[in-house]
Amino acid sequence: MEAHAWYLKLLSAVKPADPDTRGLVKYLVNNRKNGHYWESTRDTAYAIEAIAGYMKASGEDAPEMEVEVAMDGKTLGKVAVNRDNLFSFDGTFTLTGKDVSPGRHEIGIQRTGGGAVYANAYLEVFSLEDRLREAGLEVKVSRKISRIKETGKQSDTVGRTGQPVSQQEERLQRTPLEDGATLASGERIEVELILESKNDYEYLVFSDAKAAGFDAVDALSGYVGNSALGAYMEPRDRTVDFFIRSLPRGTHSLRYQLRAETPGTYKALPATAEAMYAPELRGNSADFRLKVRE
Rank of each mutant, 00 (worst) to 15 (best):
L177T: 00
L172H: 09
V165Y: 06
V191N: 11
G91D: 04
V79F: 00
G103T: 04
E178L: 07
R171G: 10
S101Y: 01
M55W: 01
R188E: 15
Y118P: 09
D99V: 11
I194M: 06
G113M: 07
A119N: 12
Q168E: 10
K153N: 10
P164Y: 02
F87N: 13
E202F: 01
K74C: 00
P63E: 00
E106P: 01
T94E: 15
G162M: 08
G152N: 10
H105K: 11
K78E: 03
L183T: 01
G180S: 04
A80R: 13
K56M: 08
I109Q: 01
T75R: 15
T112A: 14
V81R: 09
G152E: 00
K149M: 12
G162Y: 00
E68P: 05
R188W: 01
I107W: 07
A80Y: 06
I107K: 04
I148G: 07
R174D: 15
E124F: 04
E129M: 12
L183I: 04
D72Y: 02
V165R: 12
A57S: 13
D84A: 13
V100N: 06
G115P: 04
E68H: 07
R133F: 09
F126M: 13
G97I: 11
Y203D: 12
G162N: 01
H105R: 02
E60I: 02
T112K: 15
G114C: 08
T151P: 01
R83L: 01
K78T: 10
G114H: 10
E178W: 04
V81N: 02
L172S: 13
D72A: 01
G186I: 03
R133Q: 12
G103P: 00
G103A: 02
V67Q: 08
L172R: 14
E68A: 15
L195V: 12
S197R: 03
T75M: 14
G113R: 02
T112D: 13
Y201D: 09
P164W: 03
A70Y: 10
I109A: 09
S142G: 10
M55E: 13
L172I: 14
I145S: 04
R143L: 07
A121R: 03
E68Y: 03
G152S: 04
V158P: 02
K153S: 12
T94N: 13
T92S: 11
L137T: 00
G77V: 06
F93G: 11
D84F: 01
V141F: 00
G77L: 06
E134G: 05
P63L: 07
N120W: 11
N199E: 14
E187M: 09
H105F: 12
V139Q: 05
K149P: 09
I145N: 08
Q167F: 15
G180C: 00
P102S: 04
P176S: 11
